[in-house]
Amino acid sequence: MTRAPAGGRIGRQRGGPSAAPKIPGAHAEPIEDTMETVERVERTEPEPVIALRAATATLGARPVLRGIDLTVHRGEVVALLGANGSGKSTAVRSVIGQVPLTGGSVALFGTELRRFRDWARVGYVPQRTTAAGGVPATVREVVSSGRLSRTKLGWPRRADRAAVDRAIELVGLADRAKDSVSALSGGQHQRVLIARALAAEPELLIMDEPMAGVDLASQGVLATTLREQVANGATVLLVLHELGPLEPLIDRAVVLRDGCVVHDGPPPEAVGQHALPGHDHVHPHAADEPLRTGLLT
């Protein structure tokens, strides 16, 4: 498979003809080879950032992943799409070791997951509707915990505190930093979770449904934040229910159905009213609910 332009830091061509071409019927095909021959303009790294091969996983007795190949290269923005229950959340959670694989392999930055220790390179945004726990905590306290992948068991230094402040600023919550997260709206919770992932200044962002239950204003902030990260060379794997406002950022879409990859290529064309700019996708059966429904009701 072809990767996105290797010198992707600046001058990426989004959505243009150079975006990764579609691979028909990709799900059974091996996704390696050709990579070795692609020239690297900068930052030579022979290995893909994420390499999930022939991955199978079960939840209870139910097979959720039935042999998935998923490769994400440096600088790429890959969306994992599919209906509920198609296995997309399980797929990303297996990439970070939260779901054990029953077969196949995962490697991050060329290191087999079992031996991978460099977690500061990975920023993870789990699927949550709230950033709050059982005890009050401020935005800053929650975001600070994202920095632990660098400080580990040590004490935070000045640089760590500055990184936390930057992350809070990136998601536009600087004025709420000292507020309790339980006082925030659903979209602001999601921004806190993303700031927490950004606090470690990761090279790879893995996000599970970052747009779920997020109001329009926050969707805009999140899209901007993500665009800045991508412009700075970040690699992104995100689970989405639909492409929505992130569509222009996405290089490649991988669509899952019943635990198998059924599409790996350019993002599927949105049709009908879904294609209208700024369309906020609300499912018909949820249409009579207030807009910020989704997870929150």
């Binding site: 209906a83 509920n84 959340s89 699927q127 949550r128 509707t129 709230t130 709050a132 507020d179 339980s182 006082a183 925030l184 709206s185 659903g186 602001q188 919770h189 449904e209 779920a212 239950g213 229910h241 499912h283 018909p284 059966h285 949820a286 009579d288 609910e289 429904t293 989704g294 997870l295 929150l296 009701t297």
Partner: peptide
């Protein structure tokens, strides 16, 4: 501040109980 989020987890889209009655949920996958 805006009302806080609830504790519910791991939903993609909440399906209101009335969805079945409308019969319009077919085709969304």
């Amino acid at each position: 501040a805006a009302p806080p989020a609830t504790e519910a987890q791991a939903c993609d889209v909440a399906v209101p109980p009335a969805a079945a009655a409308s019969g319009s949920s077919a085709g969304t996958g």
